[in-house]
Simulated assay, not measured.
Amino acid sequence: MRSATFGAIVVALMGTPAFAQDAGDVAAGEKAFAPCKACHNFQKNGVGPDLKGVVGRKAGTYEGYAYSAALKNSGLTWDEANLREWLKNPKAKVPGNKMIFQGINDDKKLTDLIAYLKSQS
């Protein structure tokens, strides 16, 4: 009986705002993307690689962009976990990469930014 009650509580909690925010806020993520616009966009005319479809893409493979050897050889695929680590600290995630970005330390902002990137994929 006890496990059935626990299960009902978990199911009920999953519908609360605390759980809903884990998916990220796309509108807030678009705002968090503002500094990225200096180099990235979702078309083929940015200084950095096009980010359209970046979620799920193998790192260092966008055609037409000259990636660092470190990123090309990283073996990463841009899933949510790798994006989170990368966006938090690109130099720590892939030492020797050429991206000039200090990173984002705010976990909520990271979640929102990743939600926005996913919405553009």
Rank of each mutant, 00 (worst) to 15 (best):
R2Q: 15
R2V: 15
A4Q: 14
A4P: 10
A4W: 12
T5C: 14
T5Y: 15
F6P: 12
G7N: 14
A8L: 15
V10Y: 13
V10K: 15
V10E: 15
V11H: 14
A12R: 13
L13F: 11
L13D: 06
M14F: 13
M14T: 13
T16F: 07
P17Y: 06
A18C: 12
A18K: 08
F19Q: 10
F19N: 14
Q21A: 11
Q21E: 10
D22A: 12
D22E: 15
A23N: 11
D25Y: 01
A27F: 08
A27N: 07
A27M: 09
A27H: 06
A28V: 03
G29R: 02
E30S: 05
E30G: 05
F33I: 02
F33V: 02
F33E: 01
A34Y: 14
A34T: 15
C36A: 01
C36R: 01
K37M: 14
A38K: 13
A38L: 11
C39P: 01
N41K: 07
N41E: 12
F42N: 02
F42P: 11
Q43L: 09
Q43T: 12
N45E: 11
G46P: 06
G46C: 12
V47L: 14
V47Y: 10
V47T: 13
V47A: 13
G48R: 01
P49V: 10
D50K: 04
D50P: 07
L51D: 06
K52G: 13
K52C: 04
G53V: 01
V54L: 09
V55S: 00
V55R: 04
G56I: 07
G56Y: 10
G56P: 08
R57N: 04
K58L: 11
K58R: 12
G60W: 03
G60Y: 02
T61C: 00
T61M: 04
Y62G: 06
E63A: 14
E63R: 11
G64T: 04
G64L: 07
A66Y: 02
Y67G: 03
A69G: 14
A70D: 02
A70K: 04
L71H: 02
N73G: 09
N73H: 04
S74F: 07
G75H: 08
T77F: 04
D79E: 09
A81I: 07
A81M: 05
L83S: 04
R84N: 12
R84T: 10
R84I: 04
E85K: 15
W86Q: 10
W86F: 12
L87H: 00
L87S: 00
N89W: 12
K91M: 11
K91R: 13
V94S: 03
G96V: 09
G96C: 10
G96K: 08
N97C: 08
K98L: 11
K98W: 13
K98F: 13
M99D: 06
F101D: 00
F101G: 05
F101T: 06
Q102G: 15
I104D: 02
N105W: 13
D106G: 00
D107T: 00
K109M: 05
L110G: 00
T111R: 08
T111A: 04
L113E: 02
A115G: 01
L117H: 00
K118C: 01
K118V: 00
S119Y: 03
S119A: 03
S121F: 08
S121I: 05
S121Q: 05
